[in-house]
């Protein structure tokens, strides 16, 4: 649940799926992984860690983990070969059409194909997904998406609920949409957000 371009090589970011805090990161060679956002040593968020080559390290004591989530080094005890038992729980992560998909339980069906679309931006809305759906005047479809026309342009909004009754929208538009059209969609998005958030404040 992130835009590929928001996770360039050697970067880790936090995200949230089905009630689980996850750290999504991309290794130097471009490989994506999604793990529990918690170091098994003393519970520090791994999304604050650093990526070196093909491994992610915790910022607190530098414990480093390979792409399978296995601990491979404990800096305070450099001679120790960490056992396989010391590992970070991982979840399936798939990348297609510029979107990173994460499924906490084994995903039943592959992510929807979004060919011909390009990621525009991600936007956080201080309101639950249902409020956004009503404001957009349409239900969320089985792909977990809203497909409104914004500024007259067909868009796909991937809906990601996050803690605190908030929602992240990952917005895609047709790959041939002109920069002007993309800017118009972006503005229309912010109007939609303003409308939803002000309605909530008034309620």
């Amino acid at each position: 649940m992130a835009l590929s371009r928001d996770v360039p090589p050697q970067v880790v970011i936090p995200t949230f799926v089905d009630g689980r805090e996850l750290a999504v990161w991309r290794s130097q060679s471009g490989r994506i992984a999604a793990w529990d956002d918690r170091c098994p040593h003393r519970g520090m968020r791994l999304s604050h860690g650093f990526v070196r080559g093909e491994s992610l390290s915790c910022i607190y004591h530098g414990w480093s983990y390979n792409e399978a989530g296995l601990c491979q080094r404990i800096p305070a005890h450099p001679d120790l070969v960490p056992p396989e038992a010391i590992r970070v729980p991982t979840v399936a992560a798939v990348e297609s059409d510029g979107i990173i998909w994460v499924a906490s339980e084994p995903a039943s069906q592959p992510p929807p194909t979004l060919t011909g679309l390009v990621a525009l931006r991600s936007l956080t809305v201080e309101a639950p997904a249902t409020a956004i759906a009503t404001a957009a005047g349409m239900p969320i479809d089985q792909d977990g998406a809203l497909r409104p026309d914004l500024a007259g342009i067909a868009c796909v909004l991937l809906v990601q609920p996050i803690p605190g009754d908030r929602t992240v929208l990952h917005v895609l538009v047709a790959s041939n949409a002109s920069p002007a059209a993309q800017a118009a969609v972006s503005r229309a998005l912010e109007d939609l957000r303003r409308r939803v958030e002000s309605e909530r404040l008034a309620a």
Binding site: H41, G43, H61, A76, I86
Partner: peptide, 8 residues
Amino acid sequence: MEIPTRAD
């Protein structure tokens, strides 16, 4: 839920 080592 933690793994204290000798450094801890």
